[in-house]
Amino acid sequence: MKYQIRFTLNGEEQELYVPANYTMLRVLRDELNFMGTKEGCGAGECGACTVIADGRPVNACIVLAPEMDGMSIETVEGLAKDGRLTPLQEAFVSHAALQCGFCTPGFLMSATALLRENPHPAREEIIRAISGNLCRCTGYVRIIEAIEDAARDNGQ
């Protein structure tokens, strides 16, 4: 049995038929070929699959596909517009806040959600907002500095 779901993905309407036992992550990657969202732990712990759903960061690996019906979903592919990176993405590049890059889409989505809600977060707030995103190679200092930098440029 498949379930009809309608949702917006990075501003575009989507309509799909999905089995109940798929996750949002599988739909994004395998059905829609949006490979930016990564599967790390698959259990809501590492944050590699973080997307913004209805304005809030969530783990795509623990949302069932039929639950996507009616949602507005943003993935890392939706950040850059017309080939231009967002200031946050630019800050990740200039701070070299990534090495292998596997965790980067998740960090970008968590930090994007944070900066929209709180354009000038304190360092502590940044650390808390990304505590659900694990990085195993770069370390967190450059990532935190990149987000601080993007926040500093906000509205200036």
Binding site: G44, E45, G47, T50, R56, P57, V58, N59, I62, V63, S110, R128, A129, S131, G132, N133
Partner: peptide
């Protein structure tokens, strides 16, 4: 409980 992502759900 969990992370920010998890607490949203």
């Amino acid at each position: 409980v969990g992370s920010k992502q998890l607490r949203n759900r």
